[in-house]
Design a protein around this nucleic acid. Structure first.
Length: 194
DNA sequence: TAGGCCATCTGGTCCT
DNA sequence: AGGACCAGATGGCCTA
């Protein structure tokens, strides 16, 4: 009963409400926009750090490290920041909604406890693998049987998965089906008949 | 209390 | 130019 979530975190600080100071300039941060001129804007332990992503190999996509100069005024910068924060929040909410949908799509045992994100992803991966195995098994009539992939309780090999896809595509061409569900229905009935 | 998980902020980079 | 994406940092909540 982890009642986490925003409701449980009244004190979570949002930039907007927690920025009491009208003095926007106050980003205590190092020199706000200009610090970038030099790359030494990383301060571990503080709440800011700057460029230097390229330094450790991560996110080292080309481009200059100079910060883009948006509007110059502190106020304008602050407004942009707030807007950015809001968009980022919305984006994360959408991401979380997607996680929730995924949680609901995969079966799991303990329904009391909400799956964490990492658990959700892991279970989803396993679930997909399991379903793939089932599909491979069911399509014995279509796929050459016993190629080592499907059965055996293991994960289908890449080869069998590729064959499955191939078979599916062929099926689409021949039958004009446009939905995996329909394919599965066919596969199921075929497997039941035989 | 430590550790896990999460929301949010933030600034760099990429894409349209 | 502006929005989207991404990853690091921070701090709060919760459980063992």
């Amino acid at each position: 009963m982890k009642s986490k979530g925003k409701a449980g975190k009244p004190s979570r600080r949002t930039w907007s409400d927690a920025e009491p100071e009208p003095e926007q300039d106050t980003e205590p941060e190092p020199a706000s926009s200009e610090q970038e001129g030099s790359e030494a804007s990383v301060r571990i332990g503080g709440s800011w750090r700057g460029s230097l992503r390229g330094g450790d190999g991560k996110r080292k996509r080309g481009g200059s490290r100079r910060r883009r100069q948006h509007g110059s005024g502190a106020k304008e910068r602050s407004v942009r920041r707030l807007e950015s924060n809001e968009r980022e929040r919305q984006r994360m909410h959408k991401l979380n909604n997607a996680f929730q949908a995924l949680r609901e799509a995969i079966p799991h045992v303990n329904t009391d406890k909400k799956l964490s994100k990492i658990e959700t992803l892991t279970l989803a991966k396993n679930y997909i693998k399991a379903l793939t195995t089932i599909v491979v098994d069911m399509s014995g009539g279509c796929l050459p049987a016993g190629d080592g992939g499907g059965g055996g309780g293991g994960v289908p090999s890449e080869a069998s998965t590729a064959k499955l896809l191939q078979c599916y595509q062929k099926h689409l061409e021949e039958e004009g089906e446009d939905d995996l569900t329909q394919y599965l229905t066919h596969a199921r009935s075929f497997s039941q008949r035989s």
